[in-house]
Every structure is written in structure tokens, then in C-alpha cells.
Design a binder for these strands. Sequence first.
DNA 1: ACGTTTAATTAGAATGATTATAATTTAATA
DNA 2: TATTAAATTATAATCATTCTAATTAAACGT
Lengths: 159, 159
Amino acid sequence: MVSVEEQLKSMKQQMISKGYKSTIQREATMRVLLEHERDHMSAEDVYMRVKTRFPEIGLATVYRTLELLTELHLVEKMNFGDGVARFDLRSEDHEHMHHHMICSICGEVEEIQDDWLSELEQRVKREYGFNVSDHRLDFIGTFSSCKHGDCHRHRENAS
Amino acid sequence: MVSVEEQLKSMKQQMISKGYKSTIQREATMRVLLEHERDHMSAEDVYMRVKTRFPEIGLATVYRTLELLTELHLVEKMNFGDGVARFDLRSEDHEHMHHHMICSICGEVEEIQDDWLSELEQRVKREYGFNVSDHRLDFIGTFSSCKHGDCHRHRENAS
DNA sequence: ACGTTTAATTAGAATGATTATAATTTAATA
DNA sequence: TATTAAATTATAATCATTCTAATTAAACGT
């Protein structure tokens, strides 16, 4: 619904309004994120994609930008237990309202675009006096398609 | 209900029955885990504790033992997004039936000793054709006690 | 109990992801 | 346009974890 350019503009404004500068490196990084909204890219993945269009950029800059965007809650930093942090844009509409299915055969990560936890968050509040501001729900298992051997990539790293 | 010695014996038997050897280093490591059942220790934490009683042990051995125990499903390897893997014993009674509350003020991790996800796992199966073998549910937020400033340790690492 | 075999341990080096540093550049603002 | 502080660059450093080669020790059969 919202174009890449519009989203980019909005992100830049949020940066500036918080006192951060809008640079071409940050813009390039955000653009890559916008074009791979739900790809669960590692910092290295993002770096490589940014580099194809902006070869002078440094890896550290990408790391710092991703960190900044995480602080601003514009991207979500995730961790699937393989030792690499992964980053996704948080589009306004589905904030952190999604969960993951992680295939233990091929490592593929798919999303569930729903928030199934509202009730449980209430319960945590009631029973434990814990105010939930965020959550993470990952299911580990196998897709029926993977069980039958027709997996995309075959897995090289264990959780 | 089960004594440390009994649990240790059972763990050793499981090792041997799977073709692995029972060594004093592994025993020392398991003993530490048994004595810190739900402490979410990092490999380094475990190493330091083992080392007080068995100073000749190497860090790599602890890592390898934790990895082995994870494979045997005797310990659970977790990841709270701070870049360090954490390990807990899986006592027979509550397998992986627990969730975490992670305080964003002090970093403390507390457990919910319940499985709230059975229904959701059915739903994942039905709606996505994904067979769940395990899951992870973490709530991020604040304990009421922490909001009032009386926190144990103050936080130095962000998620 | 003893030797053989093979896995496990050790110390230390290597790796891979991430973060810090110091010098240089650039965006924002007057 | 000049100033100033923040951002970037390249590179070194760090941290967690894994690998390697040489040595030690469990398990098993005799």
C-alpha cells in the first residue's frame, strides 16, 4: 500500500526527528531492507546487497545502521540460534505481530502473520506481574514438503 | 524428588547406551548443570564453575560436552539475543514445557513452568502443514519490581 | 587385570560475527 | 559558506565458539 519511496521518506524523517543524520549509506541500507521486507537477512547479507549498489560502504556501517534502526524500532533483530543475527523491517501494520516456523531439515524460516499471544500476555501480567512489551514465538519442526525430501537448500548448520 | 546422584547415573547411562564414553570431565560438567538446574548459564559460566573443582578441564571440552548433552536432549540450548548461548538441564518432568520472561531493565530471565502452546501447535499443523517438534516462547518486558528501581543487577547489554 | 582400539581431552590456534578505534569525511545548521 | 558534531572508512580488536594435532584414557575382549 505504501510505496518504497514513501516508506523511505518516513524512515528518514524518524531518524532526523530523533537527532540522527540521514546519510546516503543509511538510505542505501534502508532501501535494501525495504526491498527484502521479510527475508530474515543477516548483517552480512544486507552488506553484500548494499555493496552491489554502493561498493564503497563498509561492513561496520551496515552493522551500525542496523543497530540504529533496531533502536528506533524500525527493524527487528532476531536470533535463530545459528550464531547470526537477522534483521527484518517492521512495517507499521504488523508491528511485531508475527511468529516463526523454523524447519529443522532445511533451516528455512517462514512467518505466521498473526498475533496469537494477546491472551497469554494478559495471563503473564496477571499471574507473574510481568508487563510484556514484546515477545518471540518460534516453532521448530518440519514442513510436510521437506519431509518428502524436496527441500530447497539442505541444511549445514544445526541449532 | 530424584537425587543428584541418581540423575547423574541416569545421564551417564544414556551416554553409554548411545555409544559415548563416560568421562570425569563430562561427569563434572553434568554435576554443575544438576546443581544449577534453571540458571541459564553460558558455556563460560559452566566452565568457570567446573574449573573450581576440576581445574585441569579445558573450555573446549565443556563446549563439546554441552553440545553432546544438547544432542542427547539432556540439556536445552537457548539464545536470548545477547550473543551467548545458554544451557539448562531438561529434567524429565518438564521437558521443553516452559517459557521465559526476560526483563529489559535488568536482563534477568525467569521461567514459566507451563506449556501454553499445545493448541497453537495444532493450529500450526492444520493451517501451515508444519509439524512442530519444539518451540520457544519468550516474553520481553519488565517485572513490576524492576519498574520501581529495586533491580538486582543493572543491565549492561541490550538485545 | 592387561592391551588394544578408538573416542575424548588438552592447549592453543583458527574462525566468524560483531564492535571499537583513529583518522577522515560529510550532513545539518547558523 | 563555515562550523561543528556526528557518521564513515579501514582496520584492528574482541568475543564466543570450533578446529587441530598430539596425548590420554574408557571400554571391551582376551
